[in-house]
Computed example of a mutant assay.
Amino acid sequence: MVRLSPVSKEQKQVLYNLYQLYQYDFSPYTGNDLGNSGAYELHLEHFWEDARWNPFLIYFEGKIVGFLVVLFENYDVDPDPVHVIYDFMVLRKFRRYGFGREAAIQAFNLYKANWKVTQMSANEPAIHFWREVIKEYTGDRFTEEFREDLNKYVQSFSTKDSASSS
């Protein structure tokens, strides 16, 4: 069984290392390049300085298989914030075993909230993954729109009014 574990400040180097792999995986979509040090330039301190950010490591049988970050999008201005899966990665070695699906469902079950999940339009594997997971999780009770201004697909749904399906 997959387990989500909040990332403590003491574990920030672990998350930093995983973000290097994440940036590499997504460089075909983002066009990001390595910095002069041979690493992607990352600034993650806000994860531990701002309560809106909630990073989690994804474990399976004691091994780290990925990470996800939940953002309380408008937490500081709205008493009913939208929660966003901000970043999500399962290491390539562990993909297609259901770990990502299980981690996403656990994240959705953590908070009774309105949710949004976005994908870059060029990232077809992510679009397919999230559509399938959200469709199954919500019983096909979600909306999807394409935001031209962001060049992203956005799925929206709520876990506030009904029991989760998994």
Rank of each mutant, 00 (worst) to 15 (best):
A103W: 04
W48Q: 07
E136S: 15
L34N: 01
Y22N: 03
V65E: 11
N74Y: 10
L71D: 02
S156Y: 12
K63M: 10
A104H: 00
Q106S: 04
Y59C: 05
V84S: 13
V154H: 12
E148D: 14
E145V: 14
Y59L: 08
F146H: 09
F146R: 06
Y75G: 06
Y111I: 06
S5C: 04
K135G: 15
K93R: 13
R101C: 07
L34F: 09
G100S: 09
F72K: 15
V154F: 10
V133S: 02
R96I: 00
A113Q: 13
K135R: 15
E145S: 12
M120Q: 13
Q155S: 08
A122M: 11
D149P: 15
F142R: 13
A103M: 08
K9R: 10
H83K: 11
I134F: 11
K93I: 02
Y75Q: 13
Y16N: 14
K12W: 01
R147I: 12
G66R: 01
D25F: 03
F88W: 08
F26D: 10
W48H: 10
P28A: 01
L44G: 01
L57G: 02
F60Q: 14
F56R: 07
V82K: 07
Y16R: 13
L110F: 07
D161E: 15
K135F: 01
K12F: 02
V7H: 07
G35R: 00
P79R: 11
E45M: 11
Y97W: 13
N151P: 07
F67T: 08
D80Y: 11
Y59T: 05
Q119L: 02
S162D: 15
A103C: 11
D87V: 00
I85Q: 10
W53A: 03
H83W: 09
V117M: 01
W53L: 03
V90Q: 03
G38A: 04
N54Q: 14
G62E: 14
N151W: 10
L71C: 08
V117Y: 05
L15N: 09
G31L: 01
E144Y: 02
A51F: 08
R92E: 13
W130H: 06
R147D: 15
Y16D: 12
E148K: 14
S164Q: 12
Q155I: 12
F94I: 05
Q11V: 00
K116Y: 04
K116T: 14
V70H: 04
R95V: 00
R92C: 00
F94Y: 15
F142V: 06
L34A: 06
Y97D: 10
A107L: 05
H83D: 05
K9P: 06
F99Y: 14
H128A: 11
R101P: 08
D25G: 09
S164N: 13
Y29N: 10
E10W: 00
L110A: 04
F56A: 03
K116P: 15
N54T: 06
N123K: 01
S165T: 11
R3C: 01
D161H: 13
F56H: 08
E144H: 05
Y86G: 12
H46D: 14
Q20T: 03
